[in-house]
């Protein structure tokens, strides 16, 4: 279902207040009202409904377990918001372990003064994202901090899921000759967020690509099993940072092919103007798969059938050369090193 249609089905309940106050975190009547009419009612499921201190779960076998905190500004951005991001982020981290994400915890830290309307919109996004990913939110917590002690809303989510029976995801499985596939266009999320930062606003219709990736990774595991050697979603430090992290732990090197890296032309142009390198730009809706050479083209073909991975491409190869480093081809046939980023990329002067 479309996100806007989904929102219409979740109208904001009638509260006696329009902003979050410290009383909402005190555990008293106002906390009760916020949780009962708000959180519990909206996110309703059998496990959450027990209203216990924790959730009772029954999972047999190996599980993957991951946590992430979300502290972004702005909290609403083109193509998504912090709620959706906080579900997708943890779902994707669990999925990258080769697991089927099943249950999430949700911890909200609200700053006094947050409009209830914003709070509700974020909650609805959380429900929407959870439904899309096929996970349940089974336990959680809400705290309120004084104005100025937070930044509107911070969210922590933790997720667990059972490892897929055909999965064997381990950095040690990466071999010489493995192809590295990226599931869709790079740098989309980072550039879309930048386009609405105060001081850098530019007119564009770029939107974040935040999405859950578990359906795609599970589809690949079902079909290719052990031939999938490694998954990773290149979030904060972009594909450059993530590939460097992986390479630094290996006795092998990574050779990126500049010409094959998929990127939207608007995103590319925005990066040119601001002097940013899309390789270092944040991503929220893509993953990289290290796969055996023999299946690489099949993986790309299969991914391309999905709307969420229609620009999938082989972007790099694992080589027995320049160990621990990532190199990239450049237009003249030369090669240069792709360094680990130092900090956040800063737009240049001219």
């Amino acid at each position: 279902m479309n996100k806007n249609l989904f929102r219409l089905q979740c109208p904001i309940p009638k509260f006696d207040f329009d902003i979050i106050t410290l009383a909402h975190g005190s555990g008293g009547l106002l906390t009760g009202e916020l949780l009962e009419s708000g959180v519990f009612n909206l996110l309703k499921n059998e496990k959450l409904d027990k209203r216990h201190d924790g959730a009772f779960l029954n999972i047999n076998g190996d599980i993957a377990f991951s946590t992430d905190s979300f502290v972004i500004s702005p909290i609403f951005f083109p193509g998504g918001d912090i709620g959706e991001l906080s579900v997708n982020g943890t779902v994707n981290d669990v999925a990258m372990c080769g697991a089927v994400p099943q249950y999430l915890s949700l911890s909200l830290i609200l700053e006094e003064g947050l409009p209830i309307k914003d709070f509700w919109d974020i909650l609805v996004s959380i429900k929407y994202a959870a439904q899309k990913a096929g996970v349940e939110i089974v336990t959680g917590d809400t705290k309120v901090v004084e104005r100025g002690k937070g930044d509107k809303i911070f969210i922590n989510t933790t997720g667990i899921g059972k490892i897929h029976h055909k999965a064997n995801i381990d950095i040690k499985n990466i071999k010489k000759g493995d192809k590295i596939i990226v599931s869709n266009n790079i740098a989309t999320h980072g550039t879309a967020i930048l386009s609405v930062r105060e001081g850098l606003e530019f007119e564009t219709n770029m939107i974040s690509d935040t999405r859950c990736l578990n359906h795609l990774t599970l589809m690949l595991l079902d079909k290719f099993g052990h031939d999938i050697h490694f998954f990773r979603d290149p979030t904060r430090s972009g594909i450059a940072g993530t590939l460097n992290e992986i390479a630094s732990g290996m006795n092998l090197g990574i050779m990126l092919n500049n010409e094959n890296i998929p990127i939207d032309s608007q995103v590319k142009a925005a990066c040119e103007i601001l002097g940013l390198d899309p390789l270092y730009s944040a991503n929220e809706g893509i993953f990289m798969a290290f796969v055996s050479e023999s299946i690489a083209n099949y993986v790309v073909d299969l991914l391309k059938k999905s709307e969420d991975a229609k620009n999938a491409a082989i972007i790099a190869e694992v080589v027995d050369d320049h160990h621990g480093q990532v190199l990239i081809t450049n237009p003249l046939g030369g090669r240069s090193v792709v360094q680990m980023p130092v900090g956040e990329q800063l737009p240049r002067i001219c």
């Binding site: 050369d321 320049h322 480093q325 190199l327 030369g334 090669r335 240069s336 090193v337 360094q339």
Partner: peptide, 13 residues
């Protein structure tokens, strides 16, 4: 520092 492979102690076959 960032781009040149010329002055690094890495072997490129």
């Amino acid at each position: 520092y960032n781009f040149s492979t010329m002055f690094k102690k890495i072997s490129i076959k």
